[in-house]
Simulated scan of single mutants.
Amino acid sequence: MSEKYLFDFGTGEAFPGYTKVTEKSVYSDKSGFGFSRSDQMYMINRETSKPLFSDFCIPLRNSFLVDVPNGVYTITFLIGDALVETETTIKYNDNKVLIRELKTYPKQFVRESFTVNVNDGRIKLTFFGCAPRINAMEISLKKDAVAMFLAGDSTVADQPIDGYPYAGWGQCLPQYIKADAVVCNHAYSGRSSKSFIDEGRLDSIWDQIKTGDFLFIQFGHNDSKPDKARHTDPFTTYKEYLKIYIDGARQRGATPILITSVQRRMFNDDGKIIETHGDYILAVKELAIEEGVLLLDLAEKSKNLYEKLGREGSKALLMWGVPGEFLNFPNGVSDNTHFQEYGANFIAELVVEGLREFNLQSLNLCLRS
């Protein structure tokens, strides 16, 4: 099994030890790597003396695929152009944001590394941006990454590409995490603290989590639903189910972190957010004190953000769109709970802000400055 894959993009000679990627490098099962489509990629050579940076590819909404054995991998991107400014966004598996609007100036060359979890034998990297670049790429097996597991609902989950721009904050979190750590997002739409366990989703986390890892826990949106499969009572069963997450993480040497539910965008006549989660937020806070668990108050942080932006300004964060605004929602959409990707980025920033406030060295070592 190979533990390192090196790719040099462009028209020049391949850098020693690297596999050359050209216009003819379209993915096939035989080659095991290449772009998903033969158009929307342009190879250029500036003929500079900068190794690996003189030639490059301009991939326009094209995906680069690499077959690898399942595991955790660090991907290092080399990006830049000797003559013009660039702007590059890169997503992993269609929806996880690794790089967002990275800009470089002429003759500025950067190396950015991120770690991802591969479960289906393939790395898929899709390139966006006004002027994207990829000069070279290094993919190497990462055996000692700290894992940051996410257990939650739709506001956290990785949302499918056919629902774009619908997004959970968990899929935007990787861009803020150093290559020494990997985000493992197990959150799933429509789940409560109870149904997440009953469906075996927590068992999947227990199969992977290890000493030194983190478990982020955000439920509440669906615990108040009346159906038997999801409903919990704030001060009894809700706390009892959350304690299962806490105890399980600690038994495995991991650190549990409770997160209060992100607020819904519901304003009163005075321009203040209406608390729609009732006692569920209070119950999480009580449990954090009772169990001595770190608490990230995302409810308070999102409330402050919405109120700062105001009734109209905050619509840009949520799935609000007029007919024809979003390709996947041709009839328009008005949703005060779920984020579009633009807003999910803001919420992910609030999560990172909260994590920094813990001033926990083992956690700070995972966060980008």
Results as ranks from 00 to 15, higher is better:
110 V>R: 02
106 P>K: 07
109 F>W: 08
111 R>Q: 10
81 D>K: 02
294 L>D: 13
129 G>H: 04
258 L>P: 03
112 E>T: 01
143 K>E: 15
125 L>G: 04
355 L>A: 12
275 E>M: 09
31 S>P: 01
361 Q>F: 15
26 V>R: 09
260 T>M: 11
357 E>L: 07
32 G>Y: 00
103 K>T: 07
131 A>K: 09
294 L>R: 14
204 S>E: 04
215 L>M: 11
134 I>R: 01
27 Y>H: 12
211 T>S: 08
172 C>N: 14
51 P>K: 03
340 Q>C: 12
148 M>Q: 11
63 S>G: 02
201 R>K: 13
247 D>Q: 04
102 L>K: 14
230 R>C: 02
350 L>T: 12
112 E>D: 04
193 S>Q: 03
14 A>K: 06
193 S>P: 05
240 E>R: 07
344 A>H: 06
332 G>N: 03
123 I>D: 12
284 V>A: 07
20 K>M: 07
287 L>T: 08
103 K>S: 01
104 T>F: 04
22 T>Y: 07
209 I>W: 04
21 V>F: 13
103 K>Q: 12
330 P>S: 06
278 G>S: 12
335 D>K: 15
112 E>L: 06
6 L>A: 07
64 F>G: 10
38 S>P: 10
319 M>T: 01
92 Y>E: 00
146 V>S: 15
315 K>D: 02
47 E>P: 04
364 N>D: 11
233 D>N: 13
73 Y>A: 14
106 P>F: 01
67 D>A: 02
257 I>P: 09
347 I>P: 10
33 F>C: 03
168 G>C: 03
68 V>C: 10
183 V>S: 06
54 S>R: 05
151 A>Y: 03
301 K>W: 12
357 E>S: 14
190 G>L: 02
296 L>I: 07
292 G>H: 05
210 K>I: 00
25 S>R: 08
247 D>Y: 00
129 G>D: 02
81 D>C: 09
5 Y>P: 05
235 F>T: 00
278 G>N: 12
247 D>F: 00
159 Q>H: 10
76 T>H: 03
235 F>G: 00
288 A>I: 07
44 I>H: 14
274 I>G: 13
225 K>C: 06
45 N>D: 15
343 G>P: 13
49 S>A: 14
241 Y>T: 00
23 E>G: 11
353 E>L: 05
299 A>C: 15
119 N>C: 11
236 T>W: 05
216 F>W: 12
200 G>V: 02
132 P>Y: 10
284 V>K: 06
320 W>F: 15
187 A>E: 01
102 L>W: 07
49 S>T: 15
299 A>E: 08
83 L>K: 14
246 I>A: 01
314 S>H: 13
105 Y>L: 13
128 F>W: 14
366 C>A: 15
125 L>M: 00
